[in-house]
Design a binder for these strands. Sequence first.
DNA 1: ATCTATTCCTGGCTGC
DNA 2: TGCAGCCAGGAATAGA
Length: 263
Amino acid sequence: MPELPEVETVVRSIRHHLLGRRIINVALSSHRVTRGDHTLTAQALSGATIQHVRRQGKQILIDLDNGLLYIHLGMTGKLLWNAEPGKYTRAFFHLDEGQLAYDDTRMFGRVEYFTVPPILVSRVGPDALTVSAPDFYARLQKYRGAIKAVLLNQTFISGVGNIYADEALFAAGIHPKTAAPRISKARALRLHTHLLEILKLSIESKGSSISDYVDSAGQRGSFQLLHNVYGKKDEQCPRCSGLIRRIVLAQRGTHYCPRCQRV
DNA sequence: ATCTATTCCTGGCTGC
DNA sequence: TGCAGCCAGGAATAGA
């Protein structure tokens, strides 16, 4: 499941291949993923030149000389460089040098072309990697729900998903059900510090490969080896040796240590 | 206005 | 061994 570190790893592994390249033609095969007219989209993309490859939160933004290519990997999306199209290839880009495949088994992701950047792209909050501590705390004041749900809300900050929400709350010693307004400034700042540290460490490990996440060269990440609570139900807490518990919160599997993480 | 529940998808796992 | 049924979850959408 690609979250900020995984998307950042993909962007880093693909950027140097794409910059300055011209799109020759595009094959699209999933209306679920593209949400648009395939003929018109392919037509618009053909001949376009790639100017920037950026990331905001979990969104990949590819600036073209005639618009924006917006890619969200969803749950199982992959961008693969110089791979042959396969059963789950939903979009395939022939460039003047090389080719880019968008594979996505479950089709939760998106590949969309816009002439004008949509509200969608700008509506997400500041990137989790660069949000300042004061801004993090100030923004937190706007939410009343459980802190785990707030962390997953992309309008609060963007880029955090289920894995890193659980890991950051564990590192900060905060129970995932804690109501946002009950979190003191000191604890909020501690959460901010731990979250950034975890995201940066994960990027250094090229992300977490839980099921099938890989970067554009097909490389797996290794941060899953450093997870403390995510997916560790009934295993020992590395800090207190108590058992990690799994509950469902905000419709998501949530892992935490009942002894180390307090409301 | 907020928060919560539902929906979309399919491979992989569990249990009979 | 086969297969039904459930699970994973990002984010739009609908409902409370």
